[in-house]
């Protein structure tokens, strides 16, 4: 459960969010909107990467402003550019990196990393240099690095923007199969068919909030 109450935010003089009230309990939620509409900022508030200037955010009953680390342990975040998220030289090491605070032995961490990689289609790539993977594989790796921690919520900020059509579809399909609550920020409207709820943002405000079909119809009209 994620709650926004009267949330507002600005960078310098520019207002990016104003007066956002949302309670998100659905399993598949998408944020759509033009560039600069505030959807990315909203997504970052869910794991405390951005703290709201006004209003209040509650994530799984926790306050990201005060319990940032506790929130981040339970909320995974996948960024647009996997190059920025992959921090270790090989795929296996990168996934194992997520577990470094788990108290598990090095061997156990490596084993779990391999298990997760295999589960999401990167079996046999544990020793592979991470930066030599294809774009689609890198994004899968970034996802694995989050899922190995078994988070309750997964926030994805335009994860498919850099992928080709086939990989876009595969990635979103994969998100659909997860047990976690998924919050997806995206411009790929065609991929949202299976979603429970679509929130449309425009200039920092929620302008539509509905099932995919009516919400996306509204957004398309808005975009002209």
């Amino acid at each position: 459960m994620i709650e926004f109450e009267g949330v507002g935010h600005h960078y310098g003089d520019r207002t990016v969010l104003s007066d956002v009230d949302l309670t998100l309990a659905e399993r598949r939620v998408a944020f759509v909107g033009a560039n600069g509409s505030g959807k990315s900022t909203l997504a970052r508030m869910v794991n405390g990467l951005v703290l709201p200037a006004e209003g209040r955010v509650r994530v799984l009953g926790l306050d990201p402003a005060k319990q940032g680390n506790a929130v981040r342990r339970r909320v995974g975040f996948v960024f647009t550019n996997p190059d920025s998220q992959i921090v270790m030289p090989t795929a296996g090491e990168d996934v194992a990196f997520s577990l470094r605070r788990s108290g598990l032995s090095t061997r156990e961490r490596a084993r779990r990393a391999e298990e997760v990689l295999a589960e999401y289609g990167l079996g046999g790539y544990a020793e592979h240099p991470a930066h030599q993977l294809s774009g689609g594989q890198k994004q899968l790796l970034a996802l694995c690095a989050m899922l190995v921690l078994k988070p309750d919520v997964l926030v994805c900020d335009e994860p498919t923007t850099l992928l080709d059509l086939r990989n876009k579809r595969r990635f979103v399909e994969l998100l659909g199969r997860l047990d976690q609550q998924v919050l997806l920020v995206t411009h790929d409207l065609d991929l949202l068919g299976g979603f429970d709820r679509v929130v449309v943002l425009d200039e920092g405000r929620v302008v539509a909030d509905d099932e995919p079909e009516p919400a996306l119809a509204y957004y398309r009209k808005l975009a002209g």
């Binding site: 960078y11 310098g12 990016v16 600069g36 900022t41 970052r44 405390g48 990467l49 951005v50 703290l51």
Partner: peptide, 12 residues
């Protein structure tokens, strides 16, 4: 760019 010109939160 928004991310560079305006740090979003004080991250260590």
């Amino acid at each position: 760019m928004r991310r560079v010109s305006a740090p979003r939160a004080s991250l260590p």
